[in-house]
Computed example of a mutant assay.
Amino acid sequence: MNSRILLVEDDPEIARVVRDLLLREGFEVTWATTGLEGWEDFQTANYDLVLVDLMLPEMDGFTLCKNIRWKSDVPIMIISARKEDEDKVEGLQLGADDYLSKPFSLIELKARVESLLRRWRRYNGQLTEDVKKTEYANGLIIYWDQHKVIRNGREILLTGKEFDLLKVLSENLQVTFSKSELYQHVWQQLDVSDLHTVTVHIKSLREKLEDPIKNPYFIQTVWGKGYRFIGEPL
C-alpha cells in the first residue's frame, strides 16, 4: 500500500511542485492550504508523513506540529523559509523530526522523505510485535488498541471522551495541558466556550480511577494552568 503524505503549504507554486514530485514517486498526497485545514485533514485520515510550512494562515506551523505530536508519533518534516536557529530548535522541540529550509532541491526533499518513511515503517513493525499496552505504578494498565483500562485488577468502564482524555494526558507524560487545549484535542473543536465540560470529565475520570485530588497517582491539577499526567510507567 502506498504511503500517504499530508502536505500543508499555503504557497500554491511550492505546493504544486512538491505534490507533483511525491505523486511521481508513487505516494498518495493530500494538500492543505491552511494550518486549520491541515489539522482537520490529519484528524480524518491516517498518514505516514506530514510536511508542514511554518507561516500558515488560521493556524501556524508550530501549533500544528504541537497538535499533531500530542495525537500521533507520525513523522513530521518542517519546510520553511525561516532559517533562524531559534525557529529550527522550536520546531524540533515541538516534535518535528526534520527541518528543511527553503529554497531546497527536490533531490534532497525526496531523500529526506524516504529516510523518514523508512524509520516510520520500522517503528510500526516493532509496535505490531508487542501488545500495545502500558503499565503504571499503583495498578494502572492501559490497553491502547482495545480502549480498555485496568486498575488494581479491575476493569474501569470509561466513556469514549474519558478514554480520549486519559490517552492525551498519559501519552504526554508530565506535559501540562490547559482546559482549552484538552477541549480542542478531545472534542476536536476550536470553539472553547464550554470549558466546564473538561472539568466535569476530568472529575469523572478521577473518580473512576480512584485517583485522589490532593495526592494524585495519575492526574495532577496544575493550579492556574491545567492538568498533567504523573503516572510512573513500569
Results as ranks from 00 to 15, higher is better:
70 W>E: 07
172 N>H: 06
125 G>M: 07
136 Y>N: 04
194 D>V: 14
159 T>E: 15
202 I>Y: 10
26 G>N: 03
19 R>W: 00
157 L>K: 07
6 L>G: 00
140 L>E: 09
147 H>C: 11
82 R>L: 08
54 L>Q: 05
55 M>E: 11
105 S>D: 06
102 K>N: 02
173 L>R: 08
234 L>D: 10
167 K>S: 14
130 D>C: 10
97 D>A: 15
170 S>W: 15
176 T>E: 12
20 D>H: 11
137 A>H: 13
12 P>S: 10
169 L>W: 12
53 D>C: 02
27 F>A: 01
202 I>A: 07
6 L>W: 02
75 P>A: 09
28 E>Q: 14
123 Y>Q: 12
86 E>C: 05
116 L>H: 13
163 F>L: 14
28 E>N: 11
63 T>H: 01
41 D>E: 09
54 L>C: 08
94 L>S: 09
161 K>I: 06
65 C>T: 13
210 E>G: 07
155 E>F: 08
153 G>C: 11
10 D>K: 13
125 G>D: 06
1 M>S: 09
186 V>Q: 13
39 W>S: 01
45 A>L: 08
148 K>P: 04
32 A>E: 03
49 L>M: 05
219 I>V: 07
9 E>A: 05
25 E>N: 13
160 G>I: 05
175 V>L: 14
19 R>K: 12
95 G>L: 06
206 R>I: 01
200 V>F: 13
226 G>H: 07
163 F>E: 14
